[in-house]
Design a protein around this nucleic acid. Structure first.
Length: 851
RNA sequence: GCGGGCGUGGCGGAAUGGUAGACGCCGGGGACUUAAAAUCCCCUGAGCUUUGCUCGUGCGGGUUCGAGUCCCGCCGCCCGCACCA
C-alpha cells in the first residue's frame, strides 16, 4: 500500500492526548464557531438544554451535547451560519445546600463549578460559541430578566395573591415539594407546616387555550411531549350549576363534564376540604373524624386509584333541578377540592368511581344511557359503570337524544332557567414564581407603608443580589441582611423594604435562548437580531423537561409576543428528547440495616458468570440496567474516559448502537471498540495517495451513496444509522485496491466523520493536504448519477418463500425477469412440475411465483 | 386504575408490506510474532437425515401472492400521571 503524505501523523497511533488540545486551540484561534448574525448565509440555531452547574459534567450531558454538536457541525458544512451556544442555569438550591453544608458561598461555589464544567466541555471539542456564554446568576443576565418581569407586570400578567407554602420551622425556610418527605423537612426532619404567604404569580392561565392550540403546530415535537402538555393543560367543558338545599338553607355548586347524565344523578359528593364539610365538622365529630381520615390518606395516583372509595353521609339533602327528588349529600374521599367546585353530582351508572361508591353505600344506580331506547331497563354487568356511547333513556325530555345533543340541551335549559351555565375548566393553574430563597433573581419590587407594592424603576436595575451573606443561621439571608432590603420608596421617598423573594429558576430558563441570540448591554435583547435566529431550529434535551420547562418557555415567549417585544409565539421549532446513559448496578445488602450498599463498576470483576467484588473475591448482586447516578455508583466520569480513549472515541460511543431517543447502555468493550475504530481510521487516512490513478466505479457508488445517506441520517438525528454506514464505507475502502477513486473516498470519509470525530478528522485533513480546517470545509457533493446501481439483486420466491436470487441489469422488463425466475433450477425443483397460477413481479426487487 | 411506549440472535440494534438479523460488541478458528499486545482474514439465529431442508421477529388469530412491518385479541416490560367530575 503506498504511503501518503503523513504530515503530523508521524506516530504509529493517533494520540488524542496531543491532538485533541491542539485542534481545540486551533478552532478557538480561528473563532470558527462564533456565530455572525450579519452573515449572508442562511441561519441555523441548534440548542441543547443548558446544564445546572453541579460541579461535574455528567455522561448524560456528554450524550446530549454530542448529538447537538454533530448537527451543528453538519449544518455548518452544509453552508449555514450556525448559532450553537452554551451557558449555565446557575441559580438554584444546590448552591445554598452546599453553602450550608460546607460553609462556602453559593456564588463562589457556582462560579468554580462553571469553570470546571466549561473545561470539561472544551475537552470534548464541542463546536460552541463561547463568546455568547451566559450564566443566569450574573447581574447582566438576571437584571434583564428583572426588566422583562416589570414589563409583564405593567401589562397585567403578574399579580400577587395568598398561597400556601411548606414551612420548615427548624430551618426557618420554605421547602419545595420534593424536599418534604413523609410530611417532614428533608434536612431538619421537623414536621412541615402549611403557611399562607403573599406570593407572585404569572398569568399562564390567560394563555391556556393558546398554549393548547399551539401544540397542533409543533409537528416536529415528539407526540409524547405534546400529549403530556395537553394533559397538563387539561381542558374540559361542561356544566356548572347549583343544587338547592332542601333541609338546609344553602346551595351546593357542582361542575360536571357529563350534563347529559343529569337524570342519573343519585347523590351529591363534596370534597373533605369543602366548606360544607368544614362547617359540618364543627358540630359533628364523626364528620370531623372522617375529614381527618381523608387527609391522612396516600397522595400518589396509584395509591388513590386503588384506595377504597370512602364516604360520610352528612344527612343534608338537596333538590334535583329537574325531577324535584331529594338527593343525599356525602363527603367523599375521591372528590378533589382543587378541581372544579370541589363538589360533584354523582352518576353511578356512568362513572366508575361513583359506581364503586354507590355500591359500597347502597345508593341507587339509575341507567340514563343505553345502547338503544329499548334497553332502558337493562341491568349493569358485574360491577361496571357504562361511561361509553349510547342514547339517553329514563331522562324525561332527553330520551332518545345522543350524548352530544343531550349535553347541549341540558346546558341550554340551565342557562334559560338560570340555575347553571356552560363552563370550561382548566387543570392548568397560574405559575407561582416566588421562592423564599437567597440564590435566585431578586424580584424587583419595593414594599412601602404608604404606596404599597412599588416596582423598582428600570433605571435602578439590576437589583443586585448581595454577596456578603451568611448561612450559619437558619432562614433566608436576604431577610436578615443588615442593609440590603432597606431602601427608600421610589414613589414617596419614605423608608421602605425590598421584596426578599426571588424568582423560580424556571423563569431563568424561560428566555435564555433569546439572550443567546442577542445580548445588548442596555436591554434584554434586540428584536431584529432575534428575528434572524429564532425560533430554535433544533432543541435537544431530556424528557424530564417535557412539561414544566418547555411549557413555561412557550408561555414566556407568547407573553413577550403579547406585549409586543418579539414577533413569534413558539420558541422551539423542533424538539428532540434523548435517552439516558445506563449501566447495571452492583450491590450487597448491609446486614446492619437491610439497605443495599452499592459498588462502582471499577470495584467489580464481571469477567465470569456473575459479578465479584475485587476486594474480597465474593459475589455481589447484579441489579437492573438503570440510569447512571451517583447514589447507585453505576457511573463513569467523562474526564476519566476522555483521558483513556480521547474525546473522539467518547463522542463516537455516544452516537453508536442505540437509537438516540432510547437508552444507551455503557460498556467497557463498547468504548474499547470505539477506540479501535479511531485508530483504524487513522491508519486508513495514512494510506491516502494523491497520485493514485484509475477509476473504481463500485467504490465511487458506495462513497456517494454514503454521503447522501449520512446527510439524511444526521438531519433525522439517526446517528446510530450514520455510524453503521461509516463502518461500511470504511470496510469498503480498506478492501479496495489503490485508485483515484479510493483516494477520493478517503478524503470524503474524513469529511463525513468530521462532525462526529472532529479532532481525528482534522489530523486526517492534514494527511490528505486539505485546505484550512475541516471544521470549516464543505459537506461533500453528491453525484446523483452514482446513487443508482446498474445491477440489482432480485429475490425469487415460490409462494412467498425465498428460493433463489438473481443478479440482473437494473430496469430489466418484468417479462424478462419472470422468464429468468422461472428458468431457475432451484425454482424448477421446488415447483416439481406444479402449475404456475400467478407471478408477481416487483421491478428490481423480487419475483414471487404462486403455484 | 388511566394514558403513552416497547417486545427481533449471547448483547446493543438494522430492515419504503418484498432476500429478517445491516453495523457494532461478545465468542470461536486461523495468519503474523520467540511470545504477548496490536493488526489482518474466516466463522458466528436454532435445528436437521447438511449438493440442501425445516423452523424462527413475545403469544393466539386474521388480511395479503408475500407480514418484524397492517388489523383483532392476549401476555410481559418500561415511562408518565391528576380519583379531573
Amino acid at each position: 500500500m503506498p504511503r501518503g503524505r503523513l504530515g503530523l501523523m508521524s506516530e504509529n497511533r493517533f494520540d488524542p492526548s496531543q491532538a485533541d488540545g491542539r485542534w481545540q486551540h486551533a478552532w478557538a484561534e480561528a473563532q470558527c464557531f462564533e456565530a455572525d448574525s450579519n452573515s449572508p448565509k442562511p441561519k441555523s440555531y441548534v440548542l441543547e438544554m443548558f446544564p445546572y452547574p453541579s460541579g461535574r459534567i455528567h455522561i448524560g450531558h456528554v450524550r446530549n451535547y454530542t448529538m447537538g454538536d454533530v448537527l451543528a457541525r453538519y449544518k455548518r458544512m452544509q453552508g449555514f451560519e450556525v448559532l450553537h451556544p452554551m451557558g449555565w442555569d446557575a441559580f438554584g438550591m444546590p448552591a445554598e445546600n452546599a453553602a450550608m453544608e460546607k460553609g462556602v458561598h453559593p456564588g463562589g461555589w457556582t462560579r468554580e463549578n462553571i469553570a470546571n464544567m466549561k473545561a470539561q466541555l472544551k475537552r470534548l471539542g464541542f463546536a460552541l460559541d463561547w463568546s455568547r456564554e451566559i450564566a443566569t446568576c450574573e447581574p447582566d443576565y438576571y437584571g434583564q430578566e428583572q426588566a422583562l418581569f416589570l414589563d409583564l407586570y405593567e401589562s397585567g400578567l403578574v399579580y400577587r395573591k395568598e398561597s400556601a407554602v411548606n414551612w420548615d420551622p427548624v430551618d426557618q425556610t420554605v421547602l419545595a415539594n420534593e424536599q418534604v418527605i413523609d410530611g417532614r423537612g428533608w434536612r431538619s426532619g421537623a414536621l412541615v407546616e402549611k403557611r399562607k404567604l403573599s406570593q407572585w404569580f404569572l398569568k399562564i392561565t390567560d394563555f391556556a387555550q393558546d398554549l393548547l392550540d399551539g401544540l397542533d403546530g409543533l409537528e416536529n415535537w415528539p407526540d409524547k411531549v405534546r400529549l403530556m402538555q395537553e394533559n397538563w393543560i387539561g381542558k374540559s367543558t361542561g356544566l356548572q350549576f347549583h343544587f338547592r338545599g332542601s333541609n338546609f338553607d344553602e346551595e351546593i355548586e357542582v361542575y360536571t363534564t357529563r350534563p347529559d347524565t343529569i337524570f342519573g344523578a343519585s347523590f351529591v359528593a363534596v370534597a373533605a376540604e369543602h366548606p360544607i364539610a368544614h362547617a359540618l365538622a364543627d358540630t359533628d365529630h364523626m364528620a370531623a373524624a372522617f375529614i381527618e381520615q381523608c387527609r391522612a390518606g396516600g397522595t400518589t395516583a396509584a395509591e388513590l386509584e386503588t384506595a377504597e372509595k370512602l364516604g360520610y353521609d352528612t344527612g343534608l339533602k338537596v333538590t334535583h333541578p329537574f325531577t324535584g327528588h331529594e338527593l343525599p349529600v356525602w363527603i367523599a374521599n375521591f372528590v378533589l377540592m382543587e378541581y372544579g367546585t370541589g363538589a360533584i353530582m354523582a352518576v353511578p351508572g356512568h362513572d366508575q368511581r361513583d359506581f364503586d361508591f354507590a355500591t359500597k353505600y347502597d345508593l341507587p344506580i339509575p341507567r340514563v344511557i343505553a345502547p338503544s331506547e329499548a334497553d332502558a331497563a337493562k341491568p349493569f354487568a358485574n360491577g361496571e359503570a357504562e361511561p361509553g356511547d349510547g342514547v339517553l333513556v329514563n331522562s324525561d325530555f332527553l330520551n332518545g337524544l345522543s350524548i352530544e345533543d343531550a349535553q347541549v340541551a341540558v346546558v341550554n335549559r340551565a342557562d334559560h332557567e338560570g340555575w347553571g351555565h356552560g363552563k370550561t375548566v382548566w387543570r392548568l393553574r397560574d405559575w407561582g414564581v416566588s421562592r423564599q430563597r437567597y440564590w435566585g433573581t431578586p424580584i424587583p419590587f419595593i414594599h412601602c407603608g404608604t404606596c404599597g407594592v412599588v416596582p423598582v424603576p428600570k433605571d435602578q436595575l439590576p437589583v443586585v443580589l448581595p454577596e456578603d451573606v451568611d448561612f450559619a443561621t437558619p432562614g433566608n439571608p436576604l431577610v436578615r441582611h443588615p442593609t440590603w432590603k432597606h431602601v427608600d420608596c421610589p414613589k414617596c421617598g419614605a423608608k421602605a423594604e425590598r421584596e426578599t423573594d426571588t424568582l423560580d429558576t424556571f423563569v431563568d430558563s424561560s428566555w435564555y435562548f433569546l439572550r443567546f441570540a442577542s445580548q445588548p448591554a442596555d436591554k434584554p435583547f434586540d428584536r431584529d437580531e432575534l428575528a434572524k435566529w429564532l425560533p430554535v431550529e433544533q432543541y435537544i434535551g431530556g424528557i424530564e423537561h417535557a412539561i414544566l420547562h418547555l411549557l413555561y418557555a412557550r408561555f414566556w415567549t407568547r407573553a413577550l409576543q403579547h406585549i409586543g417585544l418579539i414577533d413569534f409565539a413558539e420558541p422551539f421549532a423542533s424538539l428532540f428528547t434523548q435517552g439516558m446513559v445506563t449501566h447495571e448496578t452492583y450491590s450487597r445488602v448491609d446486614p446492619a440495616n437491610g439497605q443495599p450498599i452499592y459498588f462502582s463498576p471499577g470495584e467489580v470483576d464481571r469477567s465470569g458468570e456473575g459479578a465479584v467484588l475485587q476486594a474480597d473475591g465474593s459475589p455481589v448482586d447484579i441489579g437492573r440496567v438503570i440510569k447512571m447516578s451517583k447514589s447507585k455508583k453505576n457511573v463513569v466520569d467523562p474526564d476519566d474516559i476522555i483521558d483513556q480513549y480521547g474525546a473522539d472515541a467518547v463522542r463516537w460511543f455516544m452516537l453508536s448502537d442505540s437509537p438516540p431517543e432510547r437508552d444507551l447502555p455503557w460498556s467497557v468493550s463498547g468504548i474499547e471498540g470505539c477506540g479501535k475504530y479511531v485508530q483504524r481510521l487513522w491508519r486508513l487516512f495514512g494510506q491516502y495517495d494523491a497520485g493514485a490513478e484509475g477509476e473504481d466505479k463500485a467504490l465511487d457508488r458506495k462513497t456517494h451513496q454514503t454521503i447522501a445517506a449520512i446527510a439524511d441520517d444526521i438531519e433525522g438525528l439517526g446517528f446510530n444509522k450514520a455510524v453503521a454506514r461509516l463502518y461500511e464505507l470504511t470496510s469498503a475502502i480498506e478492501k479496495a485496491k489503490p485508485s483515484a477513486s479510493r483516494s477520493t473516498a478517503i478524503r470524503t470519509l474524513v469529511q463525513l466523520v468530521s462532525p462526529m470525530m472532529p479532532h481525528l478528522a482534522e489530523e486526517g485533513w492534514v494527511a490528505i493536504a486539505g485546505e484550512g480546517l475541516v471544521a470549516e470545509a464543505a459537506w461533500p457533493e453528491v453525484d446523483p448519477a452514482l446513487l443508482v446501481e446498474d445491477e440489482v439483486t432480485v429475490a425469487v420466491q415460490v409462494k412467498g418463500k425465498l428460493r433463489d436470487t438473481l443478479t440482473v441489469a437494473k430496469g430489466l422488463p418484468n417479462a424478462e425477469l419472470e422468464a429468468l425466475a422461472l428458468a431457475s433450477e432451484k425454482v424448477q425443483r421446488i415447483l416439481d412440475g406444479a402449475e404456475v397460477r400467478k407471478v408477481i413481479v416487483v421491478p428490481d426487487r423480487l419475483v414471487n411465483i404462486v403455484a
